Lab assay of single mutants.
Amino acid sequence: MTEYKLVVVGAGGVGKSALTIQLIQNHFVDEYDPTIEDSYRKQVVIDGETCLLDILDTAGQEEYSAMRDQYMRTGEGFLCVFAINNTKSFEDIHHYREQIKRVKDSEDVPMVLVGNKCDLPSRTVDTKQAQDLARSYGIPFIETSAKTRQGVDDAFYTLVREIRKHKEKMSKDGKKKKKKSKTKCVIM
C-alpha cells in the first residue's frame, strides 16, 4: 500500500485542523484551538488504489514558523489553505509557496490551493482571484467548507493525484537520464 505524506499549511484560523478532522473523523470542530502540530493517518481508496494518507496539520501562528522547514522537508505534497473571508490569509499563500519551493529546492512541488469556509456569506476573496492565482502557479484550486464537508475529500484526493503525477514524471525523467548515460565512448 502506497503511503502519501501530505502537509496542510496556511495562516492561523483558516480551518486547516477543521478540514483535516472532517476528512479523518467526519465531524466539524467549530471551536478554535490553535494547533502546534498534529499528525493523522487514514486509509482510503483513490482511483481504485488503496493508500495510506499521513497528514500533518501544522501551526499557522507566526511564533511556530521555525518548525516549518522541518515538516516541509518531509512532506510530499501540500494543501495551501486560505479562508475566503480573510484576504490576508490569501496573500500569505505566496509566502508559504515560496518557502516550500526553497526548502524542497524545487520549482515543481505537488500543491493544491484550497479556499476554505465557502459556506460563509462574508467572502472577501473572489473565486476568480483564487483561480487566477492557482493557474499562475500551475496547481489545482478547490473551494471547501469544513463545516458542510463540501470539497473536503476532493481537496485531499486531488493532492494525492498531483503527487502521483509528480512521481510518474520524475521516474520518466530518471529513465531518460539513465538511457543517456548508457551511451559509451570508444577510443581507438
Rank of each mutant, 00 (worst) to 15 (best):
residue 2 T to Q: 09
residue 35 T to Y: 15
residue 151 G to K: 00
residue 144 T to V: 15
residue 55 I to V: 13
residue 99 Q to W: 10
residue 10 G to K: 14
residue 88 K to R: 13
residue 89 S to G: 11
residue 8 V to A: 03
residue 66 A to W: 05
residue 13 G to Q: 08
residue 65 S to C: 04
residue 156 F to R: 10
residue 59 A to E: 02
residue 63 E to R: 01
residue 29 V to P: 03
residue 186 V to M: 09
residue 141 F to M: 05
residue 53 L to V: 11
residue 5 K to M: 03
residue 79 L to A: 07
residue 6 L to V: 06
residue 97 R to M: 15
residue 160 V to L: 09
residue 104 K to N: 15
residue 52 L to P: 01
residue 64 Y to C: 06
residue 107 E to K: 11
residue 69 D to C: 02
residue 156 F to Y: 11
residue 96 Y to T: 04
residue 43 Q to V: 10
residue 113 L to A: 07
residue 130 A to W: 11
residue 21 I to Q: 06
residue 111 M to R: 01
residue 66 A to G: 07
residue 176 K to L: 12
residue 24 I to S: 03
residue 22 Q to V: 01
residue 79 L to W: 05
residue 18 A to N: 15
residue 91 E to W: 04
residue 88 K to T: 15
residue 119 D to Y: 12
residue 115 G to A: 09
residue 175 K to V: 05
residue 110 P to D: 02
residue 92 D to A: 06
residue 88 K to D: 15
residue 127 T to D: 11
residue 96 Y to V: 13
residue 182 K to Y: 14
residue 137 Y to H: 06
residue 44 V to F: 04
residue 121 P to E: 13
residue 128 K to R: 06
residue 182 K to A: 05
residue 178 K to R: 05
residue 19 L to T: 14
residue 172 K to G: 08
residue 64 Y to H: 13
residue 104 K to S: 14
residue 78 F to Y: 12
residue 133 L to K: 04
residue 151 G to V: 12
residue 14 V to W: 15
residue 52 L to F: 02
residue 18 A to Y: 00
residue 88 K to W: 12
residue 125 V to E: 11
residue 21 I to M: 15
residue 32 Y to P: 07
residue 74 T to M: 07
residue 29 V to M: 03
residue 116 N to E: 13
residue 3 E to L: 02
residue 152 V to L: 12
residue 139 I to W: 04
residue 130 A to T: 06
residue 13 G to D: 07
residue 6 L to E: 09
residue 182 K to G: 11
residue 12 G to A: 01
residue 180 K to R: 09
residue 17 S to Q: 01
residue 2 T to A: 09
residue 116 N to I: 12
residue 122 S to R: 07
residue 111 M to T: 03
residue 12 G to H: 14
residue 8 V to H: 01
residue 64 Y to G: 09
residue 135 R to H: 09
residue 19 L to C: 11
residue 91 E to I: 06
residue 69 D to S: 04
residue 86 N to I: 02
residue 44 V to R: 05
residue 30 D to Q: 04
residue 31 E to H: 02
residue 186 V to R: 04
residue 50 T to A: 09
residue 16 K to V: 15
residue 142 I to V: 12
residue 47 D to S: 04
residue 88 K to H: 07
residue 37 E to D: 07
residue 88 K to C: 12
residue 48 G to I: 02
residue 144 T to P: 15
residue 18 A to Q: 01
residue 111 M to Y: 02
residue 30 D to F: 06
residue 34 P to H: 14
residue 153 D to V: 09
residue 25 Q to E: 02
residue 134 A to V: 09
residue 4 Y to N: 08
residue 125 V to T: 11
residue 17 S to A: 00
residue 74 T to W: 04
residue 56 L to C: 07
residue 169 K to M: 08
residue 59 A to S: 04
residue 113 L to Y: 05
residue 5 K to F: 00
residue 24 I to P: 00
residue 43 Q to I: 06
residue 100 I to Y: 12
residue 161 R to P: 01
residue 113 L to P: 04
residue 82 F to C: 13
residue 23 L to N: 12
residue 152 V to Y: 10
residue 123 R to I: 06
residue 6 L to Q: 03
residue 168 E to S: 09
residue 188 M to P: 10
residue 7 V to L: 12
residue 34 P to W: 15
residue 122 S to V: 07
residue 99 Q to S: 05
residue 81 V to R: 01
residue 44 V to K: 03
residue 66 A to H: 11
residue 129 Q to W: 10
residue 94 H to R: 13
residue 125 V to Y: 09
residue 122 S to A: 10
residue 56 L to P: 00
residue 98 E to Q: 05
residue 138 G to Y: 01
residue 149 R to W: 10
residue 18 A to V: 03
residue 178 K to S: 09
residue 57 D to L: 00
residue 49 E to L: 03
residue 60 G to H: 15
residue 114 V to D: 00
residue 116 N to L: 15
residue 116 N to K: 00
residue 81 V to D: 04
residue 141 F to G: 02
residue 75 G to V: 11
residue 46 I to S: 07
residue 149 R to A: 10
residue 115 G to P: 03
residue 67 M to W: 03
residue 42 K to I: 04
residue 16 K to H: 15
residue 78 F to E: 00
residue 62 E to C: 04
residue 172 K to R: 07
residue 12 G to P: 05
residue 29 V to W: 04
residue 164 R to E: 11
residue 164 R to Q: 13
residue 95 H to W: 04
residue 57 D to P: 00
residue 33 D to F: 02
residue 172 K to E: 05
residue 50 T to I: 06
residue 104 K to E: 02
residue 152 V to H: 07
residue 131 Q to K: 07
residue 97 R to C: 15
residue 39 S to G: 04
residue 165 K to E: 09
residue 164 R to L: 14
residue 79 L to S: 00
residue 33 D to P: 15
residue 67 M to D: 03
residue 117 K to F: 14
residue 111 M to W: 07
residue 71 Y to E: 14
residue 90 F to A: 14
residue 119 D to K: 05
residue 125 V to Q: 11
residue 134 A to G: 06
residue 101 K to V: 12
residue 173 D to M: 03
residue 174 G to A: 07
residue 35 T to S: 14
residue 126 D to N: 10
residue 123 R to K: 11
residue 29 V to C: 07
residue 141 F to K: 01
residue 164 R to H: 09
residue 154 D to L: 08
residue 4 Y to V: 14
residue 72 M to Q: 05
residue 112 V to L: 13
residue 176 K to Y: 13
residue 12 G to C: 01
residue 118 C to I: 10
residue 33 D to N: 01
residue 84 I to R: 12
residue 17 S to T: 01
residue 138 G to W: 02
residue 124 T to V: 08
residue 151 G to L: 14
residue 72 M to H: 04
residue 99 Q to H: 09
residue 133 L to Y: 07
residue 10 G to W: 01
residue 175 K to W: 11
residue 185 C to N: 10
residue 188 M to Q: 12
residue 24 I to T: 04
residue 57 D to V: 00
residue 88 K to A: 13
residue 112 V to E: 00
residue 149 R to C: 09
residue 155 A to V: 09
residue 63 E to L: 00
residue 163 I to A: 09
residue 164 R to P: 15
residue 154 D to V: 06
residue 124 T to P: 10
residue 22 Q to R: 12
residue 174 G to T: 07
residue 76 E to A: 15
residue 83 A to E: 15
residue 84 I to Y: 15
residue 53 L to R: 00
residue 132 D to V: 05
residue 2 T to K: 06
residue 153 D to H: 08
residue 35 T to I: 15
residue 145 S to C: 06
residue 168 E to A: 09
residue 57 D to Q: 00
residue 122 S to Q: 09
residue 97 R to G: 04
residue 117 K to A: 13
residue 100 I to A: 08
residue 186 V to H: 13
residue 42 K to F: 01
residue 22 Q to E: 08
residue 24 I to Q: 09
residue 45 V to K: 08
residue 7 V to S: 07
residue 96 Y to N: 00
residue 43 Q to W: 05
residue 91 E to S: 14
residue 93 I to D: 03
residue 39 S to Y: 06
residue 99 Q to V: 13
residue 185 C to Q: 12
residue 69 D to V: 02
residue 37 E to Q: 02
residue 59 A to T: 13
residue 79 L to C: 10
residue 123 R to L: 08
residue 42 K to G: 02
residue 140 P to S: 03
residue 187 I to G: 12
residue 100 I to F: 05
residue 139 I to R: 06
residue 137 Y to P: 11
residue 91 E to H: 02
residue 155 A to R: 01
residue 64 Y to I: 02
residue 72 M to V: 08
residue 79 L to D: 01
residue 118 C to Y: 07
residue 152 V to T: 07
residue 93 I to L: 13
residue 116 N to T: 14
residue 118 C to K: 06
residue 100 I to R: 01
residue 84 I to T: 14
residue 61 Q to V: 06
residue 152 V to D: 09
residue 22 Q to L: 02
residue 14 V to Q: 12
residue 12 G to S: 03
residue 51 C to P: 06
residue 5 K to I: 00
residue 38 D to H: 00
residue 71 Y to W: 07
residue 15 G to Y: 01
residue 23 L to D: 02
residue 30 D to W: 03
residue 83 A to S: 15
residue 6 L to A: 03
residue 166 H to S: 08
residue 60 G to I: 15
residue 92 D to W: 14
residue 9 V to M: 14
residue 98 E to S: 05
residue 163 I to R: 01
residue 42 K to T: 04
residue 163 I to T: 08
residue 37 E to N: 01
residue 168 E to G: 12
residue 66 A to M: 10
residue 96 Y to L: 14
residue 93 I to R: 01
residue 165 K to Y: 14
residue 141 F to Y: 13
residue 156 F to G: 05
residue 118 C to L: 08
residue 78 F to T: 03
residue 13 G to R: 03
residue 42 K to D: 02
residue 17 S to D: 00
residue 145 S to Y: 12
residue 39 S to M: 02
residue 66 A to Q: 13
residue 80 C to D: 02
residue 105 D to H: 05
residue 186 V to Q: 12
residue 37 E to S: 03
residue 13 G to A: 02
residue 169 K to V: 06
residue 44 V to Q: 05
residue 127 T to V: 07
residue 71 Y to H: 14
residue 182 K to I: 15
residue 2 T to L: 05
residue 11 A to Y: 08
residue 72 M to C: 11
residue 106 S to F: 09
residue 108 D to M: 11
residue 160 V to S: 06
residue 160 V to P: 07
residue 39 S to A: 14
residue 61 Q to E: 11
residue 6 L to N: 03
residue 135 R to P: 03
residue 113 L to F: 10
residue 80 C to K: 00
residue 20 T to C: 03
residue 12 G to R: 03
residue 132 D to F: 08
residue 27 H to M: 15
residue 118 C to W: 08
residue 167 K to T: 11
residue 15 G to S: 02
residue 148 T to R: 09
